[in-house]
Design a protein around this nucleic acid. Structure first.
Length: 134
DNA sequence: GCCAACGTTGGC
DNA sequence: GCCAACGTTGGC
């Protein structure tokens, strides 16, 4: 059981879209590091859902509900996806600003590697964000 | 809208 | 295999 953080631009796929649709294929990843992280995911792993560019905050939690499989939108066959399922919203979204100001979260790749769209996060970091989101 | 950081592509 | 040129992402 591992924890992750996945990012989406709300203009492409927003938290509201996720809440409405419940289950979706996390497609469109075209970066090898992100893909490698995707490939490590297992069913029932939990992910924070982060809004990049617009909002810049962690909105809620989704659960991995399929194994890694090929991404049908990728013609090269190099990339894949997992399905994720809505779990719950944070009571208060946790902003990038807050994350930067929190000591325990300084090592989140989100801060220094802003372009990485799928990243692992530690149980400690997970708990810390949950607390901030209450 | 700008630009820094990072990835990818292609010529050599 | 190196590296310059180019493209993309995402914070500000």
């Amino acid at each position: 059981m591992q924890y992750w953080l996945i990012k989406s631009e709300p203009s492409a796929w927003s938290w509201n879209d996720q809440v409405r649709k419940k289950i979706t294929s996390w497609d469109g990843v075209r970066n090898y590091q992100a893909r490698n992280n995707l490939r490590q995911m297992n069913i029932d792993d939990l992910c924070f859902f982060y809004h990049s560019v617009v909002g810049k905050e962690i909105m809620g939690i989704v659960r991995v509900c399929s194994a890694y499989k090929p991404d049908p939108t990728d013609e090269t066959g190099n990339f894949g996806l997992v399905d994720v399922e809505y779990v719950e919203a944070l009571q208060k979204p946790v902003s990038l600003e807050q994350i930067k100001q929190t000591k325990e979260l300084q090592d989140l790749p989100l801060i220094k590697q802003s372009r990485l769209s799928v990243m692992p996060i530690t149980p400690q970091q997970w708990e810390c964000v949950l607390k901030l989101g209450k």
